[in-house]
């Protein structure tokens, strides 16, 4: 009988909650391994440029004279190779996806501690400051 083949599925869907999530009103599903976006702990960065060299989409730019670490979040493909290669483990993968953007931008610049470990950094985190 082919007419009532889907009845079980139909009844089940009728009496269960929707299979969809009201994203972004409700947060997206995430797991412990989810690659959301890259975060940096500016105090630990030694500007070794490993992340910049390994990045397949050239999203990261490190300046060891200015002591800045900059990521273009729109270029980043969230492959996590920078997190894997970082020798000081200052980069981490946040499990939360970044919200959608409505304007151009996405460049985040941080002032980092730099190679010398004498003093903590002048300004720990400059926050998400758009690039000039």
């Amino acid at each position: 009988m082919t007419i009532f083949q889907a009845t079980k599925t139909v009844l089940k869907s009728l009496f269960s909650r929707p299979a969809t999530l009201m994203y972004p009103a409700k947060p997206a599903k995430k797991t412990a391994l989810t690659r959301g976006h890259v975060k940096i702990d500016p105090d630990k960065c030694i500007t070794c440029k490993m992340c910049q060299r390994k990045c397949p989409s050239q999203a990261i730019e490190v300046d060891n004279k200015e002591r800045t670490w900059q990521i273009d979040q729109m270029r980043c493909v969230v492959c996590a190779i920078c997190v894997d290669t970082c020798p000081t483990k200052c980069l981490t993968m946040d499990t939360q996806y970044r919200p959608a953007m409505t304007a151009r931008g996405g460049v985040e610049k941080f002032t980092v501690a730099g190679p010398k470990k004498k003093e903590p950094a002048a300004a720990p985190a400059d926050g998400a400051k758009p690039k000039e």
């Binding site: 599925t9 869907s13 299979a19 599903k29 797991t31 412990a32 391994l33 989810t34 690659r35 493909v77 969230v78 492959c79 996590a80 993968m93």
Partner: peptide, 25 residues
């Protein structure tokens, strides 16, 4: 709708084990 609902279970398992839903990496 039903096949995409089932696909969601697969994607959940992929995400839980690899970290990515469609690009596993």
């Amino acid at each position: 709708m039903n096949s995409w609902r089932l696909r969601e279970h697969i994607l959940d398992d992929l995400e839980a084990t690899t970290g990515g839903r469609v690009i596993q990496g």
